[in-house]
């Protein structure tokens, strides 16, 4: 069971604004999904290595070379708020 206080805490970590009614719904939904996931606890994982990349590919390296990206204007156009060609963001402090 995951209580409303925990849901609020997770929502804050995930940067999702959440109202009282939604918190209640998520408390219920997440609890039932977590119950379902509990099933994994019965698996014996002693001495089993975790798998992050399934085909076992090893780290690949390449030359660290700058390549020109052609459509810089296309990226700039996506800025939600723009000032003198810069992406304007909210003040942090």
């Amino acid at each position: 069971m995951i209580n409303k206080g925990e849901v609020q805490h997770i929502a804050n970590l995930a940067r999702i604004g959440m109202k009282e009614k939604e918190i209640e719904k998520f408390s219920h939904d997440l609890s039932s999904i977590l119950d379902f996931i509990e099933k994994l606890k019965e698996v014996d994982i002693t001495d089993v290595e975790p798998t992050a990349h399934i085909t076992g590919l090893q780290n690949k390296s390449r030359e660290d070379k700058i390549e020109k990206f052609e459509n810089i204007e296309g990226i700039k156009k996506l800025f939600p708020e723009e000032k003198s060609g810069y992406n304007k963001v909210k003040s942090v402090l």
């Binding site: 996931i37 994994l40 606890k41 698996v43 994982i45 089993v48 290595e49 975790p50 798998t51 992050a52 399934i54």
Partner: peptide, 14 residues
């Protein structure tokens, strides 16, 4: 308890 355990079970499935 979650992600690491799941990655290990993933190994068993593989």
């Amino acid at each position: 308890a979650y992600y690491l355990r799941a990655q290990k079970v993933r190994t068993l499935i593989k």
